[in-house]
Structures are given as structure tokens and as C-alpha cells.
Design a protein around this nucleic acid. Sequence first.
RNA 1: GGAGCUGUGGUGUAGAUGGUUAACAUAUCGGCCUGUCAAGCCGAAGAUCGCGGGUUCAAGUCCCGUCAGCUCCGCCA
Length: 594
Amino acid sequence: MPGQVEDAQKTHYCGKLNPGHVNKTVKLTGWVGKRRDHGGLIFIDLRDRSGQVQLVFDQQQGTDLFQSAESLRSEYVIAVRGEILRRSRETINPSLPTGEIEVRVNSMDILNTSNTPPFYIEDNINVDENLRLRYRYLDLRRPEMLRRLELRHRAVKLIRDYMDRYDFLEVETPVLTRSTPEGARDFLVPSRMQGGEFYALPQSPQLFKQLLMVSGIERYFQIVRCFRDEDLRADRQPEFTQVDIETSFFSAENLFALTEGLVAELWKQIHGREVKRPFIKMPYREAMNRYGTDKPDLRYGMELVDLDEQARQSEFKVFKTALENGGAVKGLRLPEGSRLSRKDLDDLTLLARQMGAKGLAWAYVEEEGWRSPISKFFTEPQQKEISTKMKAEPGDVLLFVADRWTISCTVLGHMRTKFAPGNLPDEPHFLWVVDFPLFHYNEEEQRYDSDHHPFTAPRPEDMALLDSDPLSVRAQAYDLVLDGVEIGGGSMRIHDSTTQAKIFNLLGLSEEESKEKFGFLLDALSYGAPPHGGIALGLDRLTALLCGDESIRQVIPFPKTATASCLMTGAPAVVSEKQLEELRIKLEQEKEDK
RNA sequence: GGAGCUGUGGUGUAGAUGGUUAACAUAUCGGCCUGUCAAGCCGAAGAUCGCGGGUUCAAGUCCCGUCAGCUCCGCCA
């Protein structure tokens, strides 16, 4: 056994035993799995972290040992000493790695008993996730969950080794820091020393890693926990882990190469799969136009079709006014969509409205032409032209959205993923989405917001547009996308205080405000800050993809539920009056006393 | 903040149109059994159907509310 300590209670891992160990005397420890009691002969599956092996207890060996074997139950913890025997040909279990051998037990210690577990400690169980989360320590005991933890460990180790090889330093940054405007909602931590003031948990170590560049670290990375107080999704937890990277004197191309190398090595070492490099690069605008999302899944086609020209020539007012207002008309072909009922299409329309569209138009494509509420607005040749442009065949359904460009794209992009083909190719489809806009307009606040974050550098050739047309300024920002999942993102940063101050100004931060919130950054930039930039990869998503999991909860040992609570510990929970007093916090009275 | 789905012995499920002993599998407990590996056979115990209210002679089943989990929209620089 590797890493064995002296006097260890075990000499081998259960799952590692093989015919090479035959006739050896071994000491094993583990948990009792399945028990097959034949009266005078008892089989026990002994399981430890590595796998399992069959123990045999024979009544003829003596009654004491046999009696205690009869008392064994599921999940008892035992230590045994015994001899490895080769199984007779008929009793070999080919479906088990250790199926050619078994352990004839000579002595046994029962180290602990166990209550009957609430679910089976085995793979492929079908239980409420609720229950798994409440008893997460038992859930993690299941081999498939242990394997996920192992894989995650290997991934992290590989990342550290890779970064080290390229001279990167892992540097820690504070978890208690200050709240900054913009971005996600912060988790706040009240200060006892400064009553009434709060720390924030970092949404990412963004500012610190830039300051480390000013410090002359040149190549920084950190595997770091980040916190965002926003609503959860299958791929979003309130605390998550980033592989955070920042470099000085690196071009974006240098950074792409570094990241691609890292990701390729992960896929090779852990997945045994060669990844084609360099990855495809696609401008944001193109991704939106063709796939209706900034994280397109390139494993299948079903591209959106631009119908501005056809809409302009039609008599359909809805389409025409959308265009007149500067919007776009987009179409999506659903192959064999005729299996969708009117009700299905109504549901889609509802979804489109929820996503901000004014509506969703559709047409069943038939031999004779369209069957659609909007067919009367299009002449037969016009219908034909659209059908041809969308490569439609009888039996398809066509979806149309005419709205603001982003809405038209994102609504159909969402429909595209909803109706994605079932069997997608195995090879991972990586791509860089580049040339994101620097700003978007925040309708609610009536101002510009950073699309990425306020420290992102504009593309040099777009600098002049900062004054005339901020929304058309492109950022030196990029996202790494894999099969429709955003697994990372970053940018080249602003490294002079003048430009940085200008961006703050455009974001509606007054000089005093930006001094107050970011003065330390502006100061730092004025002391010889090197050109720098970086990226952050989502380790949970990366690991989930490597494991083939849909939800990152599967690769997080102790995840939170959709309402951000922990079913095991009961967090969050009320605290004592005394704790609150120390923090000078008063809770609002419940409005309705019960 | 909104929408949808789910919630029945320990676990996973079944319980059309409301009808009175809530079914099945598995786990659990007891008995038998020396080659099983989803062990087998016999027997026992175990759920008032998430919670609250309502309709009804009668509710697991219908209605309203509520809680929890999941998925999605908004949100997530």
C-alpha cells in the first residue's frame, strides 16, 4: 500500500487486491457492504475507498469468529486479517475487479456498528437529492462520489503542477475584503471591531490579482473560493471555486495558448482525450447572430437565420416595425417540428414573452406551403424564399422573433438549446468568444454598465469611440466556452490610471466615489503598473464536464440547495441575541406575529 | 420576484372518473440454508399519503394556501 505508515491497521486496499496476492496474509479495513448469509457460510463485501473485495467466513473455522460474522450488518466498520485465496473457476465473478480472489478471514475486529443507512451505499441509486444532501457524508461514501472527489483532486493537482511549470506563483488573497459597486450582490460579514461596518466576501480576487501585478509577481494563479449572492442554477452555487490567473507582459494570444495548454492537458490526463488546438475564436456578435448566445454549443448546427431582408419586403407590420426600430428579425428551423402541438407552440410563445420578446411567430412547413397564423402576410414566393433560406423541409416548424437584436437572438438561441439533438458528438468543442462589447446599457439604472468588469481594457482601435459611441466599443475580453457551457472568462486590463478614471466616469461613478471605492487601485496604477491581463476558469464546471455531470452539485462535496441552504448543517441559521448585540445588529420585527 | 415539475412505509414506486383492509419491490427484524455475489426460501413488523385549511355523507385522489427539493425566466460585472 502506498504511503503506508508503520503499524497500519491495513496492509492493502480492498479494491487493489489481485491474483498476485494469492496466499498472502493481509490486513484490511473497511465498511460492510452486501452480506450473503448461507447459514454455515457467510460472504461479506468489504468496501474501502479503493473498491471492494469478498470476505469468506466458514463455520468450520471456529464458532467465535463465525458468530461475530453473523452479527455484521450494513456499514459496520471492521478490520480483518486473512489469507488471499484464488477462487475456483465456477465462483469467479467477472464483473468485479477483485472477482478472481477472495479473503478467507482468520480474525476480525468490529471497530464500529452502524444504524441502517437511509439509502443504499452503492452506485446508480435513485433517491431524492434532498435525502442525499441531508446525509451527504453517506452519499460521498458511494464509490461514484468518491471517484468524483478523486478526479477533482487529480485535476487540481494537475493544474498546480502545470502552472508551476510555467513559473506561476500561487498567492493567497483575503476572503474578508471590501464591498465594491457593480457586479453580483455581495455576501456581507459584519465587523465587530468597526460596529456598523461590513466586510464583503470576494466575488473574485479581481482587484488583488491586479495589485499583485503591480507588485511585480508577473505570473499569479490561485485556486480560490468565490462568493456571489445571486439565485442558484444547476451550474451556479453561492460559493464556487475559480482557477484564477493573472499575468504581466502577456498578450491575449499568450494567455489563450497558456489556457488551451492547461485545458488540453486536463482532458488528456483525466479524460484520455486529445484536444484540437488552437481553439476556434468567434466574435461575440457572430456567436449571437448564429447561435443566439454568447456561449454557443458547436456540437450541432441549427443556426439562426437572419431574415431582415425578407421581413422588409413582406407586408407583416410586426416584422417591419421591429426593423424600423433598429431591431432584427431572426428565424430558427426546428427539424421535424411537426410533432409539436399547438399547445407546445403556445408554451414556447409564453417562454419567449417571459424572456422579454413581444411574441413568437411560427409556421408548420407543409408540401403546400405554410400553415401559420402569419402566412397571410407573406406571398407564396415570399414564403418560399424564407423556407429556402432556412433550408426548411415539409414536417419542419419555423420559429420567428422580431424584436431588439439581443432579444431576437437570445430567445431563439434558447429555443435552439431546448430542441438540440439528443445524441451529440463525443469530442469536446472548445471555443473562445472574443470582442465582447465593453458596455451595455442598463435600462433600470439608466446608465452604462461594464459588460465584463470595469477594469477591462477597450480595444486600442476603439478608444476614440469611448466619447462618441460607448456602446460600440469592443473590449479586450474573452470567454472560454465548451459545449454550451461558459468555463472561463477574462480580459486584458486597463493599466493606466487615466483610462481607468475615464471608464469609472463613463460608468457614472463620480470622481469622489471612484476615489472612495477604488482609490487604492488608481493609486497603484500610477506607480508603474505593468500591462497585464488574466482569466478565471470555473473549476466546478470544468470538473462536472470531466465527470459528465449536468449539475456542479455532483462535484462539490457539500453543496447548497436552490435556496442557498445546506440541508446537512441547516445553514443559514439564526444566531444568538448576544452575537447580534456584539455586532450591533437589530433584526426587524416580523410583520405578522403568530 | 415569476413559471413549471415533484412530495404516499427506511428507500424507490403504484394508487382513471373521490368510496372506506393504501398495493408492489427493496431494505429492516426473526427462522431455515456451506459457494453466493441483485443469493434463495418461510414469516413478521413498518406509511393516516410534506404541512394547514376547505368542498363532500366520504379526500392520498378535488379546491385554496403553505413548506421543501429540482428545472427554467429575471438575476449572475
